[in-house]
Design a protein around this nucleic acid. Structure first.
Lengths: 159, 159
DNA sequence: ATTAAATAGTTTCTATAGAAACTATTTGCG
DNA sequence: CGCAAATAGTTTCTATAGAAACTATTTAAT
């Protein structure tokens, strides 16, 4: 297995997710990243969070989050609240409309993925989880310049 | 492990690859998808291939390939040749400049990934390979509507 | 207390990515 | 043969994604 093959295969995974995201977008008018933001907000106290919180959760650039929130706002699924404690930032909160959409729309994706995950045993799901962990490390751009993976073997030999 | 966690983790992998791609772009003026196209062309007879071949290799939409080739052409790394046998299509061929760039630029990524892959045993690399295979299947958008994974267990139990 | 540094977000720019609509050929069917 | 269907690419549109430059605030440091 060479690095090129790995890259091409990962590209395929990315593509599949993009396609699924666009499919959901067509069906529900919302993308997976947008859905993840709504989901995250629904789990927060008072259904609100700062842009920074969202950025940390979905691990995206501030400008990307800005765009996603903007599009969610246009659809009336989230709203902005001023943050009186820190006027630089603002709170993004889930609207009732957003909560409604969250109740209905994600089932499709959730069901599809659940169906597949259910066909796996607990052990297999654990393996999948650690595989993703390994991939994350393997591809971690921020650490690519640093020393070779230290924890890789730990993860791999832990099964 | 729930589906949301998996999605978020995969998003992180995607992000890492994007970041690495942009880093390479800044350093060498070329992105990973563009690099994959050059690499593919370098392996073909007469260093040429049709847009369709490229599309099949990197698994992207025709319009995406069109854009990538366009940008490679602007940089003088590939050139278009008319296909006299089929005037609808055209051949894309690697230029000398493209071959030069290929010789120098990818080493960085290649070295980085190789360094990491070398820290793994053959068995571990095989595991990684099958993990990617499983992920590919798990996320395969085209098959998401079809029956639950049939080959999943086969792959998983084959190790 | 004033000013420099850090932080939160936004805007602009560019690339990847795909869908849909389109053009131009080629194939195949009657 | 002639016309419909399929195929190869391109163009337009929209979304994700990040970098860089920017604004506005807050924190920290002298």
């Amino acid at each position: 297995m060479q690095y090129l093959e790995i890259l091409v295969k990962i590209r395929k995974i990315i593509r599949s997710i993009n396609l699924e995201s666009k499919k959901i977008q067509k069906e529900f008018g919302i993308s997976i990243p947008q859905l993840l933001v709504l989901q995250y907000l629904s789990e927060q106290a008072d259904y609100k969070a700062s842009g920074k919180d969202i950025k940390n959760y979905i691990n995206l650039n501030a400008s990307t989050v800005s765009g996603i929130v903007h599009r969610l706002e246009e659809k009336g699924l989230v709203a902005r609240l001023p943050n009186s404690k820190d006027k630089r930032g603002m709170f993004i909160t889930l609207t009732a409309k957003g909560a409604d959409l969250l109740k209905e729309s994600p089932t499709t994706l959730q069901e599809k993925m659940s169906k597949r995950l259910k066909s796996l045993s607990q052990k297999q799901i654990e393996d999948l989880n650690s595989s993703i962990e390994i991939l994350t490390q393997l591809m971690d751009a921020e650490d690519l310049d640093a020393a070779p993976l230290i924890t890789m073997n730990e993860i791999l030999t832990s099964d």
